[in-house]
Write a protein that binds this DNA or RNA. Sequence first.
DNA 1: AATCAATCGTGAAATTCGTAACGATTTATA
DNA 2: TATAAATCGTTACGAATTTCACGATTGATT
Lengths: 205, 205
Amino acid sequence: MKTISRKTIDRALLYIRALENLLKEKRDKISSSELADITGSSDVQIRKDISFFGKVGVPRVGYETKRLKDILENFILQDNIVHIALFGVGNLGKAILKYPGFQTDKIKLVAAFDKAKSKLSKEINGIKIYPVERSAELIKKVHAEIGIIAVPPGSSQEVADIMVKSGLKGIINFAPNCISVPKSIYVKNIDFSIEILSIFSHTQL
Amino acid sequence: MKTISRKTIDRALLYIRALENLLKEKRDKISSSELADITGSSDVQIRKDISFFGKVGVPRVGYETKRLKDILENFILQDNIVHIALFGVGNLGKAILKYPGFQTDKIKLVAAFDKAKSKLSKEINGIKIYPVERSAELIKKVHAEIGIIAVPPGSSQEVADIMVKSGLKGIINFAPNCISVPKSIYVKNIDFSIEILSIFSHTQL
DNA sequence: AATCAATCGTGAAATTCGTAACGATTTATA
DNA sequence: TATAAATCGTTACGAATTTCACGATTGATT
């Protein structure tokens, strides 16, 4: 039995997004090379990735847009809805609360927490802000799976510990430092400064 | 002559960040395995990465924190200051304008642009917001190298074209679609929804 | 001074990943 | 119906990356 690689999954998510856009434009067929142009990949890479899911395309025609999207989504997301809990309602946290992509049929931001009393019991974009003390209780109630850390660096480890205790299985960490969690928890760090420096260094070489 | 890989550079940026934190704690020595714990890497990986820069560590002791940081920084950043231009002052754009990491001695956000007349001539965190029409002129004046796309998806390609014309060499794209630019321009896409779905799928497998 | 333990640096093996090459399949067309 | 052109799927190859294994070096200890 072949096993799918993380890179293939991440590219497949890109393909899904592109296929959704194509569907909006009523494109019902797409070739690997066109999809490659759109997603910045290569046609071979795309065929290779898709081949994991079986024989989906038809030679001389390409892939049926909707079918391909359904197959990828079914494998990767299995009509799950992803529920997010946000920690930290500063500038970035507010932007995340208002982010349209986090109130869709697949992804829902369902809870927000902050330490500052002044921010509590407010509501942003229909989401109430609760004290961090209630996070374990509320996260279990709303069945959140993924947590977002958008707190200042000094508090990120503390928040991460709370997240783990609350039963979250994956974390996006926007704080500019690494956090330590059990191996079973998946963490993705997004550090804006490092992204900038990385891009800059790439432009230098 | 050996050439450094992109992955090594990106990890080195993580090391630099960790070393800065260690310096703040007055830690003047660090071993590869400790650094691995902090950054979520492995000791061998770290030694291998650092070996590119020569023999920096001393056996039985480890690396001198400041020296290692200096060596990595000197190679990757060469005491450059990175200047950023922001396109789109919506919720995310505002959060970026207020992000402390973008007003440091190494990274400076120096210009912000928006289409909406209502946002112009305002000032956020000391940065004035200009109309996109003036971007080429102003970006050249302030010598910005990196651009951030924080506009709605419909405008991202348009903005990308303007960025290229303005002479920016690298782009972070927060819009949820791919943009097409000349190969000489480096683009890093950050799509919050895709990040969430990626994490979610990792927690499922 | 000799020995030991800790840590680095590195060549080689193993693994992962992307690319290329090419046969197989399908539609269009003469 | 035979041929041609386009596109897929897959095997084999090559490149990049990580991991392993181990020798070399240093500081601590007796």
